[in-house]
């Protein structure tokens, strides 16, 4: 297991892609599974696309019910609209429209801040 942290407080200082690059240089990889924040999954998918390595990403689109009932979680995969909660959450990372997903993740940025401040943690 390789650990990376942005500030180097544990494991390797850097991003997940830095660690992935190390592994890819070291051995032959045929499948990559990325689970985590959208920018990371996007960066991983971009890296492996050029190398033709099959890559799956587990999408955490904004969800309401998680049963396919509302469509809040919709993502564009291979040009088609899919519901992350029901068709996914795992999709071919090379087909995901990360740009649309990134913007949809910011849909409630303002409200998230208000809700967070309201929690009186």
């Amino acid at each position: 297991m390789l650990i990376t942290t942005n500030d180097g407080s544990a494991g390797l200082k850097g991003f997940v892609t830095d660690a992935l690059l190390k592994v890819l240089e070291r051995e032959k990889v045929i499948y990559v599974l990325a689970v985590g924040p959208v920018p990371m999954m996007k960066a991983v998918s971009e890296m492996t696309r050029a190398l033709h390595i099959a890559t799956y990403v587990s999408l955490n689109a904004i969800m309401v019910d998680g049963t396919g009932m509302c469509g809040a979680c919709r993502v564009t995969v291979g040009g088609e609209t899919k519901f992350a909660c029901f068709h996914g959450p795992d999709f071919d990372g090379h087909k995901v429209d990360f740009e649309n997903l990134t913007k949809r993740q910011k849909m409630f940025a303002k409200q998230e801040k208000i809700a967070f401040d309201n929690m009186h943690l």
Partner: peptide
């Protein structure tokens, strides 16, 4: 409960709901 959506440009924009 599986909503039908229009498949037109902007269908997946922010602020577009079922």
């Amino acid at each position: 409960g599986l909503p039908r959506l229009l498949n037109v440009p902007g269908s997946n924009a922010n602020g577009v709901y079922s």
